[in-house]
Design a protein around this nucleic acid. Sequence first.
DNA 1: CAGAGGTCGACTGTTTACAGTCGCCGTGTT
DNA 2: AACACGGCGACTGTAAACAGTCGACCTCTG
Lengths: 217, 217
Amino acid sequence: MATIALLGLEKKSLREQALAALRTAITSGALEPGRHLVETELSEMLQISRGTLREALRQLQQEGLVSAGARGRLSVRHLDAKEIRDIYSVRAALESLAARTLCELPDRQHVIGSLRASIQAMESATQGTLEERVESDLDFHRTMCRLTGNETLLHSWESLEGSIRMSIMFAGLEKGVRNMSVDRHNDIVAAIETGDATLARDTIREHMDSAAAVLVA
Amino acid sequence: MATIALLGLEKKSLREQALAALRTAITSGALEPGRHLVETELSEMLQISRGTLREALRQLQQEGLVSAGARGRLSVRHLDAKEIRDIYSVRAALESLAARTLCELPDRQHVIGSLRASIQAMESATQGTLEERVESDLDFHRTMCRLTGNETLLHSWESLEGSIRMSIMFAGLEKGVRNMSVDRHNDIVAAIETGDATLARDTIREHMDSAAAVLVA
DNA sequence: CAGAGGTCGACTGTTTACAGTCGCCGTGTT
DNA sequence: AACACGGCGACTGTAAACAGTCGACCTCTG
């Protein structure tokens, strides 16, 4: 196998570059689910030492992209239908909290603006590649979490992000993208704007349920 | 032979031992918040090499017990009142999902039994040390997440566990323990038993809100 | 031919060594 | 006295080496 490029991240530590490269390799399918990850092999691909690689792998493991087998053997995690549904349940819970938090803000104009901008970016990406559309979709949801100002919430969501990407990849990008609807996002923002936390929660739950359903179909 | 089985169970990697030791050191206050963590210093304390230590630190970092400063300098995370409230918000969201999931199970008898057993253990610990009482309390909540069978949910909760422990420590064990009520837990189980997800959610939220309020007071 | 060793190879666990960087502090200059 | 400079020490980033373990395959023996 050819080397995995570490482009665009020259400023950061090798560990972070490796982490990003591995994440991409896994969520893009270059490293297919179930694949056994051999440290010496990967460190050669990435042109880094094993020690540095191992640090990155620990992080990946915690994110759930990599799972441990006997004697520390690592492999790319394989997601089955139930796991995808589970991931989306947790995702829905986190994003519902995000929406509720935003609903309770006294002044939501700035928040609404940012969210609408994110939706706009998504509309612009309609003509782009599948990957770009997925990115813009995840951006919206990540933005929602970030705008709450709750770092713990954002961090929890981000540690789920890799699994979400894998879910989409697992089911095929087409399916994942087909489910992405600008309308749904507009509904969420509208609910937040009126401060209706219950409606926002229900909208998000429906969004997540149908997304999970499409992915496992 | 018993010895063979025991060998497999008690032998963990140095990394895991170090991880557990560091977690304990931080949540017990031996390593106070804000303290700068020097790798060579820690590796000497723990009698392990820096490489092994660094892997453990990455995991600790992801759990939020350790935060990174300039040039990779790590220090024990310091939680302020807002962060504690934020952590408990996310915790409430996750446990609400757990309760709702359990409410939707067709046959909940086994679950109810396990939860009541956990509460029983908590009552037994009433006479124990403060640490033991905190442990039994966390056990109940962790059990609730585990019983859902949603590994992602359990994992998300567990990655918050360290922060929860820090919150309790930050406010002083007495305060944390004073807030632990067997009644509250019984209320949660009762709600799950009747399948009333809304009631379970509200009970958990109140529980979490008041816990956070006590801790930051 | 079956099965008990026994060597080999492939990995992971762990340690040790080396390189780079930043702040500190003393020194010399003006 | 203020300031620029340069050596020094303290850390982190990174690499390379060493050790232990388990499975595969091969061989010898009954």
